[in-house]
Design a protein around this nucleic acid. Structure first.
Lengths: 256, 256
DNA sequence: GTTGACCCTCACGCGACGTGAGGCGGGAGG
DNA sequence: CCTCCCGCCTCACGTCGCGTGAGGGTCAAC
């Protein structure tokens, strides 16, 4: 009937040390439901659930005391917890993606022998950052909400819808090719307008594509060869050109 | 002429406390280049660069001692540092995305009133995880090596190359459509063989695409609507089918 | 009944700072 | 010139989240 788990078993399955569990017991963060006659800790399924929550928030850098407060706040339903966790995660992921973008910029700067100002160098290590999570979480990558929304919509698309989308895409691609062939700079007004059309096309057909997300897509157009191939096949250099136009457009929009 | 910065200024711009900078000085992790006559610390641009590196690795959870070792290893060029950082970031992002996926599964389970086994609950808090970074970083997304290699090769491609690639791609896509239309399961031998062809096509033309990377691409085919659109336009359900075939093929290969 | 794996409770140590305490430096206003 | 106040300095002890023994009981197996 297997009524409960010992510390060692819990530690094993959860990937923590026995000492950690002892510590959580000491500070009252996670006390096992019961003890055997000989004083051995007995953890039950409910304790495992709580431990998982604890580990989750710990991974995101919360102090244990705060974790206790969060988990002991009875006014939050389990479902709400999961939502909160998802928000925190997407926010955190977004932050790391910003960091990655900064590293990419640094690589670029290095290649060009270009120097950055001190402020530029640190802007990504935002001061607040702990507090900013909860606000940012709502927007930003739009979280996985974006692709969820996308799935929701696209599952209802029929063959005609896909053909229409393909046609729009082809038309846009042709405009892109012509613009680049005409020698337009990626940060010219026309190029940025085309980038805006590109963004609108995504928003109309898939999900609400903000500038942050658009930047993310632009990065992917360069990072993944399947994308690169698609665009390079249309015109050599187009992948890069489109990438730059999207970035320029996002810069323009966010500076205003 | 602004020759250097004081502790307070550095702390301000970098978003750390003065005490932290003192600490880094104490342990020799970051000692300012000079001091004023009266003993005030004077930080220069090079010190700021180093501080940025320190903060970066700190954010990823490295102990300070190790950070010192990493940064003082003269055999690593700045460019290589940036590459490493990018690798670490993508690995870390991947981990958090796994966490997010786990949370999504938990939400789903909650909605369905379904219980998970203890092992399922914790599988995502992988035991090693700290060590795994350094190994995973090498493979997995193939790090940035993959796309660097890809850029290196593709910049030399001419129009004829892209046309050849496009033709191969079209041929493969047609085989995929026919296979799915014939009612073949994604985990059938034929489907997995096609997935293997797909992988070979990438390896031949872009970069060495291992199974881990291939899995990553498969995930993207579903996650990103631009990809989804491409495949769905060929045949409804193809994006999902190809995804599953790739996963099945990777499972098969890695189990042997 | 002995062995060995597992459990218990102190209790000290450590990494990465936080947080004063007590004192010097420097420039702006009276 | 003196004072005021802010920023800087150096100890030095406190805190958080455990790691790491020390010393000793428990339980299932052989």
């Amino acid at each position: 009937m297997s009524t409960g788990y010992s510390v060692g078993q819990v530690a094993g399955v959860a990937g923590v040390t026995v000492r950690t569990l002892h510590h959580y017991d000491e500070i009252g963060l996670l006390s096992p439901r019961g003890r055997t006659a000989s004083g051995y800790r007995r953890y039950e399924d409910a304790d495992l659930d709580r431990l998982q929550q604890v580990l989750f928030y710990r991974e995101l850098g919360f102090p244990l005391e705060e974790i206790a407060a969060i988990l002991d706040d009875g006014s939050v339903s389990p479902a709400e917890h999961l939502r909160r966790q998802h928000q925190l995660l997407t926010a955190r992921i977004g932050h790391l993606q910003d960091l990655a973008a900064a590293v990419e910029r640094a690589m670029e700067a290095e290649r060009m022998g270009h120097r950055l100002t001190p402020e530029e160098k640190f802007e990504v290590f935002g001061a607040d950052y702990q507090e900013s999570w909860e606000e940012e979480a709502e927007q930003k990558w739009g979280g996985t909400d974006a692709w969820k929304e996308s799935r929701r919509r696209t599952t209802r698309y029929g063959k005609a819808d896909w053909q229409r989308i393909k046609a729009e895409l082809d038309a846009l691609n042709e405009r892109l090719v012509r613009a680049m062939a005409a020698g337009l700079a990626p940060d010219s007004g026309e190029a940025m307008d085309l980038a805006e059309v590109h963004r609108g096309h995504i928003t109309d057909n898939f999900y609400d594509c903000g500038y942050r997300i658009h930047r993310g897509l632009a990065a992917m157009y360069l990072a993944d060869p399947r994308f690169t191939a698609t665009y390079e096949q249309l015109a050599p250099g187009l992948a890069r050109w489109l990438h730059d136009a999207i970035i320029a457009n996002a810069d323009r929009a966010e500076r205003s």
